[in-house]
Simulated scan of single mutants.
Amino acid sequence: MPRAGTFGPVPPNSPRPAGMRARLRSLAREASKFGAVGAVAFGVDLIIFNLLLNAGSETLSAKTISTVIATTLAFIGNRFWTWRDGAHTHLARQYTTFFVLNAIGLGIALACLAISHYGLGHFWPALRSQAADNVAGQLVGTAIGTIFRFWSYRKFVFRADTDRNPGMTSSSPTLS
């Protein structure tokens, strides 16, 4: 028997700290699904953005159009797969909230693109290239926007349905 304050063997029938582990596993599953949906939407966004640029569209217009199309795809994937067990009682409100939050995410990506293309590109013309636009808008902007989207979708759009998941509350396991 170990002395007080020392570590000893854990009895085989002792309860496991399942609360935190279960929440982390659930969060990892959720983030994986969100990531898969996001990867598909990102691919669609990237392809459409570059097609529009090659067709002569203005940079910010091309990014806006490609993001709106990718957002529609992401809503469908997240609504019916990632958070299919969440509270889905007001689809129109959910769809609207999703798009408002995604517009903020779009704003983040557009800000990164505008700072690079129009701000820094004024001093370094290489930042006005298609490759630089892809790095600024598609990689940097999308990465920062994705972090915001994951948090905001969980918090405001696809909240856990407490009727179906009695152990979950509106504050768990959300990111705060």
Rank of each mutant, 00 (worst) to 15 (best):
F150K: 06
G19Q: 14
L120K: 01
S116N: 04
T169M: 02
A31Y: 05
R29Y: 05
K33C: 11
R3V: 06
T89C: 10
A126K: 02
A70K: 02
N165Q: 10
F49E: 04
A39C: 13
R29V: 10
A22H: 14
S171Q: 03
S61V: 14
T97N: 13
T72V: 14
G105W: 00
G5S: 12
Q138D: 09
R29G: 10
Q138W: 02
R79N: 06
G107H: 00
R93A: 12
P9W: 14
R84N: 04
A18T: 13
I76G: 08
I76S: 08
G38C: 01
H117G: 05
S14N: 08
P2E: 12
P9T: 12
I76F: 10
I115S: 10
C112N: 01
A36T: 13
S171I: 05
I108S: 01
F123M: 07
L139R: 00
N102Q: 07
F123W: 13
V10F: 10
N102A: 06
W124A: 10
A41N: 03
E58D: 13
G38L: 00
T162I: 08
W83V: 04
T174F: 06
N102F: 04
V10K: 11
G5V: 10
H88T: 09
L52A: 07
S170N: 09
Q94A: 01
W124P: 02
E30Y: 11
V100A: 14
G167Q: 11
V100P: 06
R23H: 13
G38A: 00
T142V: 10
T82K: 03
H88Q: 11
P11L: 15
A41F: 00
G77W: 02
I147G: 13
A4W: 11
R154Q: 07
A131H: 02
M168R: 13
D163P: 00
L60V: 09
G35I: 12
A114Q: 07
S176V: 04
I47V: 12
D133K: 01
V135L: 10
V140S: 03
A131I: 03
L52I: 07
R164H: 09
G5W: 11
N165W: 09
V10G: 07
R21L: 15
I76C: 09
Q138M: 09
A31N: 05
T59Y: 00
A114T: 11
